[in-house]
Nucleic acid binder design. Sequence first.
DNA 1: TTGAAAATCACCCGAAAGTATGACAGAGGT
DNA 2: ACCTCTGTCATACTTTCGGGTGATTTTCAA
Lengths: 144, 144
Amino acid sequence: MKRIYIYYGIGLGILLVVLRLIEYQFLVRAYVFEIYGGLIALIFMGLGIWAGLKLTKRKSAPVVIQTPLQFDENKIKEWGISKREHEVLELISQGLSNQEIADKLFVSLNTVKTHSARLFEKLEVNSRTKAVHKAKELGLIRVN
Amino acid sequence: MKRIYIYYGIGLGILLVVLRLIEYQFLVRAYVFEIYGGLIALIFMGLGIWAGLKLTKRKSAPVVIQTPLQFDENKIKEWGISKREHEVLELISQGLSNQEIADKLFVSLNTVKTHSARLFEKLEVNSRTKAVHKAKELGLIRVN
DNA sequence: TTGAAAATCACCCGAAAGTATGACAGAGGT
DNA sequence: ACCTCTGTCATACTTTCGGGTGATTTTCAA
């Protein structure tokens, strides 16, 4: 039933447009500018829609990230990650909150924040989830 | 929400400035017509692209997520996770923030929040990192 | 047609996370 | 002794998350 309303609306709209067109037939000369503008708008709108469709169509390039790594100790050093930072990283990857990590390591919440901040800096990320993702890609922590 | 307002405001502001500039440039007086036409063309082109993306969001969005199907589809159903929720889960596991996910899926931030909230409920977790950890354990998403 | 599930969006609020900066102590290398 | 790195802790501030609630629209199957 909603569709009926839509169709009805569309019908009315078309009718209005037609009436308007008839009305403007006498005034075409006076509104050349507007008409041109409208036409340009319509054409480029269509072009834009077409471009938008085109743009979204080929997004099926599968990304094959292959990193079935087992946690390489050398890589940790490579990335300049300290022992403590790595511990924090592991715990983060297990889904622990900063507070939980702090309790587990017997340090303050602020310390955990400092460690994770440095970690994020070294991994060039800005959130724990990104850190975990990248760390697993790089083989800095074991994947499950 | 706010973002949209901001972008819209910025866009309007830029447009106004541009129009002002045009207005005050006597040298280009002669080309006002062309410039206006060009501007209209550009604006509607952008609008068209946006509309095109918007219109095809449901078709294009799922394609963006390249899942080589290493996860168990039955398990997803087992846990009562909907398609959209699963998409969000995947993107979360890739370290994206809610805002980034919203942009990628062409939905609002609030929607992503709703999806993730339901997801957390179903997975019986209370944070994205825990969700990722559990989902990988359960084989709901591919491990890298 | 209708009814349920899914998807969408909004608002509020408190908690957690993240940023920036500074400080201090111990270990280890030069 | 001096310097650097690491680990520790703190304060203050901004941003993001997550929980709770309510609502409308779409979709899909019975």
